[in-house]
Amino acid sequence: MNFGSQVLTLIKLEAKLEWKNRQAVTSLLVYSLASIYISYLSFRQVLDPVTWNALFWIIMLFAGTNAIAKSFIQESKGLQFFYYSMLPPQAVILSKIFYNILLLGVLGGINFFIYSMIFQSPVQNNEQYLLGLLLGSIGLSSTLTLVAGIVSKANNNAALVAILGFPLLFPLLLMIIRFTGNAINGYSWAINQSWCGLLLLLNGIIIILSYLLFPYLWRE
């Protein structure tokens, strides 16, 4: 089995396990819905587009942390041992990252839809905003997956994911809020494309670093 198909198999396995135990996905969805609704009850309406955007990304940040924190924790020791003995660690981390991108991308899409309905959407360029959502999901998932891997080797304390992850997400959040803020204002692609390039670069750096560093965590 070559590397690509190993990664694909692992992603499928991950999805199957998730589907078997649907409670985890449902709880994620309820968590985001509850956070959006709490925001609605506390804000009632958000007139300022900057606040609208910031609130959305804060909800996404917490939803993402919650979704990804469990990605190594929920596994049994037996399954981890199976991975360890059968597969290269790089395949494990890449499959987890790609699976989490899918998960967070879908979750982000649902969040965006509901959030735009509850708080009137000021977004003028929806395509660009959705692209931003995708780029943000990639960045959030790849950073938090490695952090979840680190925490799983520490003492599996879920609060540690937030403590370790949030400071590392500052550059990503700053850039993504700028990018999506431009999409809200309906700026042309010519202005926003440099931010898109920077975000792609940052995501690339994070994924390459995870690929290089994860084997050191894995070995025991």
Binding site: I150, L160, L164, P171, L209
Partner: peptide, 30 residues
């Protein structure tokens, strides 16, 4: 905080180093 959460010396060193490298790059980007 991460280092203090791990009691095993070798594990602490390894995980701390991984986080340190990742954190340094992210800080630099920031």
């Amino acid at each position: 905080i991460l280092r203090n959460a791990i009691t095993d010396e070798i594990k602490r060193a390894r995980i701390g180093s991984v986080y340190g490298i990742f954190a340094f790059v992210m800080m630099f980007v920031f």
